[in-house]
Structures are given as C-alpha cells and as structure tokens.
Amino acid sequence: MSDMRCDIELTVNGETVMETVEARTTLVDFLRETLALTGSHVGCEHGVCGACTVRVDGAIVRGCLMLAAQCNGAKVETIEGVSDSGQIADLQSAFERRNALQCGFCTPGMLLTAQELLSNGGVPSRETIREHISGNYCRCTGYQAIVDAIEAVAQARAGGRK
C-alpha cells in the first residue's frame, strides 16, 4: 500500500532520474505526475486503450500496466523525447497533413505503436496496419486517416524518400 516506497534510478528521454516512488505507482503516473511528462496519457488504467504507450528499453509497453518500481535501471522514452529526437518527424508530419488526429489524446500512443510497426521495415498491408494499431483506441478518427498516414510513411521510407 501507500507506505511501501522504493528508490529507483533510470533514464528518461536520455536524462538520468533518481526518485523515490510508492511501490504502487504505475509508470505512466510516475511520468506524468512526478516528471511532468504529460504527453503520455491515461485513458483506462486497465491496459485496453493504449493511450499510455511508452517505450521501455526499446519496446513499447502500456505505462498503466507497469510499475515505476519495475523500471529501475531501465531506459524509458516518451513521446516528448521521441519527438525531440526527430525519429518520427515524418510520421508526425503525415499525421498532421492527413488529419490522422482529431482531439490528439490517442496520438502519442498511436505514433509510438505505429513507429514500432514501421521499424520492422517494408510496406505493411492496410490489414496489417489495422491489426497492429488495434490495441490503441481512437474515438475520434474512425482509424482510416491513421491507416492512410502510416501506409504513406511506410511507402516513403521504403522508397528511401524520408
């Protein structure tokens, strides 16, 4: 419960962070509340919506299903860091031009999930794209614009036209 605390040391977006957290604190709450990295969102807190998607040691995870204490020694990346690194600039630009985000609440998670698929290389089919993002809930767009944007970036990257 609330009286269990632990010290953790990790890197978040390349910066070393040392904090004391309650054992029950989820990774996404830690990022949002302790580190004020509010780009990762909380939509359900039970692992369904994908709004809390972040990267831990290179793999995407649901920040609401992982505890901050589990991230001791880990390398955590959030939308803020990934944006600033420029590695998804083409994907962000495609989302903006194709209006693949409306309210934008799902978008940070959606972008990180899409980037995971795209980093496998090649041009996935629309069905594969739809399947891959099916753990990320979007209430606004109806998904088609998101699929279009991801597909376009896959084609551009495959053609070497970043």
Partner: peptide
C-alpha cells in the same frame, strides 16, 4: 496539430 502530435 503539431502540438498534439508532440505530446505538448
């Protein structure tokens, strides 16, 4: 949109 897409 850029603000939203960057988590800002």
């Amino acid at each position: 949109l850029a603000r939203l897409a960057q988590g800002r």
